[in-house]
Design a protein around this nucleic acid. Structure first.
Length: 262
DNA sequence: TCGCAGGTGGTCG
DNA sequence: CGACCACCTGCG
């Protein structure tokens, strides 16, 4: 998703480009309550009713009652309460599984601007044309078949670094064994360790109890919950005990909150 | 110039 | 099984 000058976001998913924004709260009075948060109505441009029903409704996880989940998570401790308040609009996107796998392999030991660049380069160089919006061409990410046919030299212009090998090996494995639909299958992929597997499980498979532990979550666990920085096992146990069955949603609030306070 | 960024695989004790 | 460490790349 790319933020536009007017504050809206343009991006592609499942081969469709849309522009999305939250209309200001009082732009129209339809009498509906806004659930206590200062957000208005969601407006999606370049979207048919059919696409909304088939793609974006599910992608944005609109059927889930996040207020109810927040109530379930609150009261356990002050930290998660503050984090939920700070990131009140966060939702877990239901992303395409294969694209989620590629994206999070690329994300490892990497920074966000470069992750975005790599994904865009990969799509533009080796993906099919998906859609055009406001004069710009958007591309899908390459399929497992396409990616498996490439060499490390082919991928050089994408600037993936050592991750190029991981993507090719993962693509080959997916062709052989099929798509991975659980944590253990994900963990068999090349370049997929516990952190990436949990991210894919959360965003690609909608397992809302998956609790990815990256460097920022480690900082949360140490700074705010006083858990030893090295003790990832204890962090997982803590998450299960305190946030289950919505560890992944709690993780997103904590992650976003921690990044804001450094 | 050098450390570091939304980790992982390989090696070693 | 846990502790190290190299690893592409580009930016500050």
């Amino acid at each position: 998703m790319e933020k536009q000058a007017d504050g809206s976001y343009t991006g592609i998913a499942f081969g469709k480009v849309v522009n999305m924004k939250m209309e200001s709260p009082n732009a129209n009075s339809n009498g509906n309550s806004n659930d206590g948060c200062d957000c208005g109505d969601l407006v999606i441009d370049n979207c048919t009713c059919e696409d909304f029903a088939d793609i974006w409704h599910r992608y944005l996880d609109l059927d889930r009652d996040y207020n109810q989940i927040k109530q379930g998570l609150s009261g356990r401790d002050k930290t998660i309460y503050k984090a939920m308040d700070y990131g009140y609009g966060i939702r877990i996107l239901k992303q395409d599984l294969w694209e989620t796998i590629i994206s999070f392999i690329i994300s490892q030991n990497n920074n966000i601007p470069r992750i975005k660049g790599c994904i865009e380069n990969l799509a533009k160089n080796f993906g099919e044309v998906a859609d055009t919006y406001k004069g710009k061409i958007y591309y899908n990410l390459p399929s497992p078949e396409k990616l498996a046919s490439l060499t490390i030299e082919d991928l050089a212009p994408v600037r993936l670094g050592y991750r190029a090998k991981y993507l090719i090996e993962t693509a080959k494995l997916v062709l052989t064994d099929g798509m991975p639909y659980d944590f253990d299958s994900l963990s068999c992929l090349c370049g997929v360790g516990p952190k990436v597997a949990n991210c894919v499980s959360l965003f690609g498979l909608a397992n809302y109890d998956s609790f990815p532990i990256d460097v920022w979550v480690k900082r949360v666990m140490f700074t705010l919950y006083n858990i030893d920085e090295k003790n990832v096992k204890e962090m997982q146990r803590f998450a299960t005990e305190n946030f289950s069955p919505y560890g992944g949603i709690a993780q997103q609030y904590l992650f976003y909150y921690m990044r804001s306070i450094n």
